[in-house]
Nucleic acid binder design. Structure first.
Length: 317
DNA sequence: AATACGCACGGCATTACCTCA
DNA sequence: TCTGAGGTAATGCCGTGCGTA
């Protein structure tokens, strides 16, 4: 029991002057213990410190109006005798006291010993009470912060999940479309890989003689498919740090019919996943419209803060 | 210089009490 | 009047830093 320990320390101090006096907090407890010897601690109930605000040291009262008042009913007797005083009810701090403490907390949520003593003096509280209030206040602040963090991250997660689901649906839709087109083109599949043809000096598919059984529309569709596949392969390069196609990958993604909006509406949090070599992804490709560059400009302020404004990030640090 | 010890203090989990719907 | 939930003052334990022998 802390108070017991303090009491023992105080006794030691009384017996010998060799040891330094207890700290202010322990002096508080010492005061309580000496004032109310019947309150030396109760490990079972834990109710040991029903502090008498009005019986605080006489120098208290800088904010006399803030002092909570104990009427005679509370004391149960007009002839108050601390030695026979029954444990008081737990009292809340007054609104004014709380306001004063809140204001002080806003200035600095850490409590230096001098400040603690001064606050206690101003409020007519024990320094120990001020310390406890700050301790609990920090805990409440931390809990609020955790709640805020959780809500924020959950919102981010939900948004990303929506994006993912939407993209998966789009992907599936396009895949089915490709399958459908492939089935409509049994002849085309027998021909050499169109992609190879496009990369070689050989005539492009569009250069196939009109006498071919393939209609022009089908050829166009094939080109679209090829471009789509190229785009997909290019996008896969984005995740390959060794790939020299980083810039091209971004460029391709601009024309990606699936998700072009994501290029202009780049999610800043995506950059939180950066690893070693992200420069090619962070830097805007030279061909991108100014809008994209501006969005990166905004991103600078928010980089590594998961996309929320700086003002919203006070709880991050 | 290295070590052990005691003390002060803050963080944290928990308890006890109060208030209110 | 009773009761359960939520808020908060306070307790107890533990880890850490610092001074001292």
């Amino acid at each position: 029991m802390e108070i017991d320990k303090v009491y023992d320390d105080a006794d030691d101090m009384l017996l010998s002057n060799e040891r330094p006096p207890p700290s202010s907090e322990h002096l508080d407890s010492f005061w309580i213990s000496k004032t109310f010897p019947s309150f030396q601690g109760d490990s079972a109930s834990g109710t040991t410190t029903m502090v008498h605000f009005q019986n605080s040291p006489p120098e208290n009262g800088g904010l006399g109006g803030l002092l909570p008042t104990l009427d005679k009913e509370d004391n149960g007797s007009e002839d108050y005798d601390p030695c026979f005083h029954q444990p008081e009810k737990k009292r809340r701090l007054t609104i004014d006291q709380v306001k004063y403490l809140e204001k002080s907390f806003e200035e600095e949520n850490k409590l230096e010993p001098d400040r603690k003593v001064q606050l206690a003096k101003d409020l007519g509280l024990q320094p120990r009470q001020v310390a406890i209030w700050f301790q609990n206040r920090r805990a409440r602040y931390k809990n609020k912060k955790l709640e805020k963090d959780y809500d924020f991250l959950k919102e981010r997660y939900d948004k990303l999940k929506d994006d993912h689901d939407r993209l998966a649906r789009e992907n599936e839709k396009l895949r089915l479309e490709v399958e459908s087109l492939k089935q409509k083109l049994p002849v085309a599949e027998k021909r050499p890989n169109l992609c190879n043809m496009m990369n070689s000096e050989e005539p492009r598919p569009t250069e196939i003689p009109h006498s071919s059984s393939i209609s022009q529309n089908v050829i166009s569709a094939n080109v679209v498919v090829i471009k789509q596949e190229d785009a997909n392969s290019a996008k896969s390069d984005v995740f390959d740090s060794e790939s020299p196609h980083c810039a091209d990958a971004n460029l391709v993604s601009v024309f990606d019919p699936v998700d072009s909006s994501r290029v202009l509406d780049q999610d800043p949090s995506d950059f939180s996943q950066d690893h070693e070599d992200d420069s090619c992804r962070i830097l805007p490709p030279p061909c991108l419209p100014k809008l994209k560059i501006d969005s990166y400009g905004d991103l600078n302020a928010d980089t590594c803060n998961l996309g929320s404004s700086v003002d919203d990030q006070t709880f991050w640090f």
